[in-house]
Design a protein around this nucleic acid. Structure first.
Lengths: 255, 255
DNA sequence: CGCATATTTGAAGAGTTTCAAGCACAGTGG
DNA sequence: CCACTGTGCTTGAAACTCTTCAAATATGCG
């Protein structure tokens, strides 16, 4: 079923959208804003569904309104890597290229705002200020991806998990990431499965599990349930994320 | 010493430049081309020198004309990761941001064409077609970085090295990558040190050395000298790069 | 030629994965 | 209401890849 078929083409007022004043949608007041309003269609996607398939033609782009999108690449033997996660207000898809080199999938139930490809690219041509905004969006995405490759390239498993938790904390101030809004006050809600976290951090889900337990035993985290952790020592977590300068010995972690 | 001081502000004709018809410089014929010509200054940088320091203000961007630039990030404890390599015709620097989150260093002796930051950004504003070209440049860079994080996230050391060699092969058709132009016909010239390769592939230089020897013993490569390898079985190399579907046993590699 | 630097090779050790089993939780049906 | 079943998470032990430390060899340059 095509994501752009008429049944989904219900216009939405951007003013009702929780991310309407962010990123490329923030060009409010300009003529482009009205065009974007006419162009965008809200669409709900259940968790697990693929939005854009690797090596396939993609005829739309869009913004994440709520939920998390994972960008993945699969090797011939089935190994899979998540090369990026997209949160509310993030842009998904790859303009100016017929075939996507990655797959975009719903990591959670999703609300997205989709733009038909050619109409959107025509809009960019007419409104350089929107294209300028898009350039800034992708420059930030490039910086974030490069920093993530530092994490993948030379950090230990515990450091990676600490970095992941802090990334979630940074991004969870935004609406739509958690159902209850609890995330702000020290409780992290892991929005994706252990398997997905593993594919994002370049390690196995068993190692994730073990390290989360180790950090709980060390008093840095407190397990609420399997997807919720309270951060007891955020400063310590930040130290781990950048580098460990003390001995890795659970006994020393208790204070 | 400032890279933009008068002694370096010698105008160059783009028509003499080996990458003048590539990327953002390919807008030939337009009014923008002439402006770029006036703006760009050729500058020679010795290997090892830092062009832009991490967390420092950068007042210029530019194109690589010949040589290789490495983009690095250093952790507090000294661990370092190369998050990208830039070859001739690649753009370096980070527009629209005061402070660079990465360091840009000359991995080899370098010839670059630099643009003063504010003048360049003003040009982008006047000429959306150049900014459009820049967006495409960074979208490609983002794709490449994401594919590299697949390599870092879930590939084994031998696969990473194979992927690195093939990446060099892909890029070495361009002028300025090797002194003798030998690269095209199956001989790969490693333009950077083992230490840099290690920091790029997220492994130690010892492992690089061992795996290169292993692939030489297996008849896939032939060592000319420590920086030159002839590719005897390119198809095999490509198979390794994506995934190894046979047993990893040097004995089986000999055919 | 001799020194400094870069690369190769070797052996021991650590961290992570793999394989396997056990546990917790949610949904389903009796 | 509770066992049943599927799924996802946790935990354990063994195996393995890669790193670390150390030394030898090769390469480049004055």
């Amino acid at each position: 079923m095509n994501i752009l078929t008429p049944e989904y083409l219900l216009h939405n007022k951007c003013s009702n959208c929780s991310v309407h004043n962010r990123r490329i949608c923030s060009t409010a007041g300009s003529a482009a804003a009205e065009e974007l309003n006419r162009l965008g269609r809200i669409r709900h996607i259940p968790a697990g569904q693929t939005i854009t398939t690797e090596n396939a033609y993609a005829d739309f782009y869009g913004n994440v309104v709520s939920g998390v999108v994972k960008i993945t690449k699969t090797l011939k033997d089935g190994r899979q890597q998540i090369v990026g996660l997209l949160f509310p207000s993030d842009f998904f898809g790859r303009p100016f290229q017929d075939v996507s080199r990655f797959s975009f999938e719903a990591a959670t139930d999703l609300e997205i705002c989709v733009f038909e490809r050619h109409a959107f690219e025509a809009l960019l041509k007419r409104h350089p200020e929107v294209e300028h905004e898009l350039l800034k969006v992708f420059l930030n995405e490039l910086d974030a991806t490069r920093e993530w490759s530092v994490l993948l390239g030379c950090q230990k498993t515990r450091e990676r998990i600490a970095g992941f938790l802090l990334m979630l904390l940074r991004r969870n101030g935004f609406r739509g990431c958690s159902k209850d809004g609890q995330d702000a006050n020290g409780i992290i809600n892991l929005p994706i499965s252990r398997k997905d976290i593993a594919m994002y951090l370049g390690m196995t889900l068993e190692t994730i599990s073990r390290q989360l337990q180790a950090m709980s035993r060390a008093g840095i985290l407190k397990r609420i349930d399997s997807n919720q952790f309270e951060i007891l020592l955020p400063r310590r977590l930040a130290e781990i994320a950048t580098h460990e300068e003390w001995l890795i010995d659970d006994g020393l972690w208790s204070r």
